[in-house]
Deep mutational scan, measured.
Amino acid sequence: KELVLVLYDYQEKSPREVTVKKGDILTLLNSTNKDWWKVEVDDSQGFIPAAYLKKL
């Protein structure tokens, strides 16, 4: 599985998104959309702007 590093805090703005903190390491589930990547946070899944993430 691929991991990503969160570069900036992000507060979810819709139920399909997730809240993350700078420095979090998350599992990347889908990066086919260049603007929004799907990640797994704890036991939930959701989208975060790709610009907030860096592949490890």
Score class of each variant (00 low, 15 high):
Ser31Met: 07
Lys13Glu: 07
Thr19Ala: 06
Trp36His: 03
Arg16Ala: 11
Asp9Asn: 07
Leu29Met: 06
Asp35Trp: 15
Leu3Lys: 12
Ser31Lys: 06
Ser14Trp: 10
Tyr10Val: 01
Asp42Asn: 14
Asn30Tyr: 05
Leu56Gln: 04
Thr27Phe: 10
Lys34Gly: 08
Leu28Trp: 02
Gly46Arg: 11
Glu12Thr: 14
Leu3Phe: 14
Gly46Cys: 15
Asp24Pro: 01
Phe47Thr: 03
Pro15Gln: 10
Asp24Met: 15
Glu12Pro: 14
Val4Arg: 00
Arg16Asp: 11
Leu5Ser: 03
Gly23Asp: 05
Asn30Arg: 06
Ser44Cys: 12
Gly46Tyr: 15
Ser31Glu: 12
Asp35Tyr: 15
Gln11Glu: 13
Lys38Ile: 14
Asp43Met: 11
Ala51Val: 12
Val6Pro: 00
Lys21Cys: 10
Gln45Leu: 07
Leu29Cys: 06
Ser44Arg: 15
Asp35Cys: 14
Asn33Gly: 08
Ala50Asn: 03
Lys22Met: 07
Glu17Ile: 06
Asn30Thr: 07
Glu2Gln: 14
Val4Pro: 00
Val6Trp: 01
Gln45Ala: 13
Tyr8Leu: 09
Gly46Thr: 12
Glu2Leu: 11
Arg16Thr: 11
Trp37Met: 02
Glu2His: 11
Glu12Tyr: 11
Leu5Asp: 01
Val20His: 04
Asn33Tyr: 07
Pro15Leu: 08
Glu2Asn: 11
Glu12Ala: 15
Asp42Trp: 09
Lys54Ile: 12
Gln45Thr: 13
Lys54Gly: 05
Asp9Ala: 05
Lys22Ile: 04
Lys54Pro: 04
Asp43Thr: 11
Asp9Lys: 02
Pro49Gly: 03
Glu17Ser: 09
Tyr8Trp: 12
Val18Asp: 01
Ile25Ser: 01
Ser44Glu: 12
Ser14Lys: 07
Lys13Ala: 11
Val41Tyr: 09
Lys34Arg: 11
Asn33Thr: 05
Ala51Asp: 12
Lys22Leu: 04
Val41Gln: 08
Tyr52Ser: 08
Trp37Gln: 00
Pro15Ile: 08
Ala51Thr: 11
Leu56Met: 09
Glu2Asp: 12
Gly23His: 04
Val4Gly: 03
Ser44Val: 15
Tyr8Lys: 14
Asp24Cys: 07
Glu17Trp: 07
Gly46Val: 15
Lys22Ser: 08
Lys38Phe: 15
Asp9Val: 02
Glu17Cys: 08
Thr32Tyr: 09
Lys38Met: 15
Ser44Pro: 01
Val20Lys: 01
Thr32His: 10
Val39Tyr: 01
Tyr52Ala: 12
Phe47Asn: 03
Lys13Ile: 08
Lys22Val: 06
Lys34Trp: 06
Ser14Met: 07
Thr32Leu: 09
Leu5Ala: 04
Val20Ser: 02
Asn30Cys: 13
Ile48Cys: 14
Lys13Cys: 11
Val20Met: 02
Ser14Gln: 08
Ala50Tyr: 02
Lys55Met: 10
Asp43Gly: 15
Ser44Gln: 15
Asn33Lys: 06
Glu12Cys: 15
Lys22Tyr: 04
Glu12Gln: 15
Asp42Glu: 13
Lys13Gln: 13
Ser31Val: 06
Gly23Gln: 02
Trp36Glu: 04
Lys55Leu: 13
Pro15His: 10
Asn33Trp: 06
Lys38Thr: 09
Ala50Ser: 13
Trp36Met: 06
Leu5Glu: 10
Leu56Arg: 01
Thr27Trp: 12
Leu7Glu: 02
Leu29His: 03
Lys21Met: 07
Asp42Phe: 12
Arg16Met: 13
Val6His: 00
Val18Ser: 04
Leu53Cys: 15
Glu2Pro: 10
Thr32Ser: 14
Glu40Arg: 10
Tyr52Asn: 12
Tyr8Ile: 08
Asp9Thr: 05
Pro15Thr: 09
Thr32Ala: 12
Ser31Cys: 13
Thr32Asp: 15
Asp24Arg: 10
Lys21Thr: 08
Ser44Ala: 14
Lys1Pro: 12
Asn30Lys: 06
Ala51His: 13
Ser44Met: 14
Ser31Gly: 11
Ile48Glu: 01
Val41Cys: 11
Leu3Tyr: 14
Pro15Val: 08
Leu53Arg: 00
Gln11Gly: 07
Tyr10Asp: 02
Ser31Pro: 05
Asp24Gly: 04
Glu40Phe: 06
Ser31Asn: 07
Tyr52Phe: 12
Asn33Arg: 08
Tyr52Thr: 06
Val39Ile: 07
Val18His: 05
Tyr10Lys: 01
Asp9Gln: 03
Val20Asn: 00
Gln45Asp: 09
Leu3Ile: 07
Leu3Trp: 12
Val20Pro: 00
Lys1Ala: 10
Gln11Phe: 14
Val4Gln: 00
Thr32Ile: 09
Val4Met: 02
Val6Tyr: 01
Ala51Arg: 15
Arg16Tyr: 12
Asn33Leu: 08
Lys55Asp: 04
Tyr52Cys: 14
Lys34Gln: 11
